[in-house]
Nucleic acid binder design. Structure first.
Lengths: 164, 164
DNA sequence: CCACATTAAGTAACTGGTTACGCAAATATA
DNA sequence: TATATTTGCGTAACCAGTTACTTAATGTGG
């Protein structure tokens, strides 16, 4: 294979994460497009959430997914335009938009689910020879949750200065 | 922690990869900004390549990093604007732009390197409790290199149909 | 030697994220 | 009860990537 970023070890990892994440994203979009499906990556998550909960608000979804709320707004707007989601204003709290799946969405779900199941299978296959991956990936996320890349790096810098 | 995407297991992984990759990216940018450094994420890779090779072309870099060539064009344009890179046209092949580090770049390198070393340390720390991570991550990349997400998922779909 | 194919690099339009800001509604406080 | 704070969500501007297209230079086969 002989990949430069891999040879860089720790230095190349963040770029490899981006590269992998992008490649999955674009490949998923291409899949849906080539199959003529009117959905996009991440929509499966919204579908799952709105099946579980009937109605949710933008803020609830953004907290659940740990995405910024403008990101969720964008996704939801697209899903509304495609007729998969409808909104109504909460009568008790007029700031809140209550989101629900439309009839159309429920009708199309079985078809979508075939693709999502196949995609899930793909990820399983990709991870088949990597039995520690999910567990170790979680550890990294948890570490970064406690102290992010910037803070950790600044601390390393300071320690390094002191040791001179 | 109780993270929805984590609970989704295989289904949530691609979004978690994006989330992690983004968080590292933005945190790195913030680090450079807060320290008043006039560099951006990924530039370290270009610096390393141009120290090793003296001159390279856009295409060579994009092949080495496995980024699309427009991505490299954008990075290089920024580095040129910041005075870190200069270009001259190859006399043998006037399509090629030969890239080299400027005097200014060489002068600032030692400062940058302090930060890059600290960042490398951060990644090492993040991976400290995940001894199989790099190895298993590579396996995933290699699998996707042989057949991408779309093709694998389409194949899974077909198999599934046949088994019914 | 000329027509055609390939290659290098630049540009445009788009994508899914982000932060920063603003506004209106709800809540807390003096 | 009036005022200050917080909350929900929408919008703008940005960011680092992508694909698709263009142009110019080079390489190649009849």
């Amino acid at each position: 294979m002989n990949d430069f970023l891999t040879e860089m070890e720790y230095v190349g990892l963040t770029s490899r994460l981006k590269r992998l994440s992008d490649s999955l994203l674009y490949s998923t979009k291409e899949l849906y497009k080539s199959e003529g499906l009117d959905i996009e990556p991440n929509w499966n998550l919204i579908f799952i959430l709105l099946q579980e909960n009937e109605t949710m608000t933008i803020t609830e979804i953004s907290e659940t997914l740990q995405f910024s709320h403008p990101a969720v707004v964008k996704i939801i707007n697209k899903m509304k335009k495609n007729g998969h989601i409808e909104t109504r204003t909460d009568t008790k709290d007029k700031r809140k938009q209550l989101l629900t799946l439309t009839e159309k969405a429920h009708k199309q779900l079985p078809v979508f689910e075939k693709y999502w199941t196949a995609g899930r299978k793909t990820v399983m296959d990709l991870l088949a020879d990597s039995p520690h991956f999910l567990e170790e990936f979680l550890k990294i996320e948890e570490k970064l949750n406690q102290s992010d890349y910037k803070d950790r790096t600044l601390k390393n810098l300071k320690n390094d200065e002191h040791s001179n």
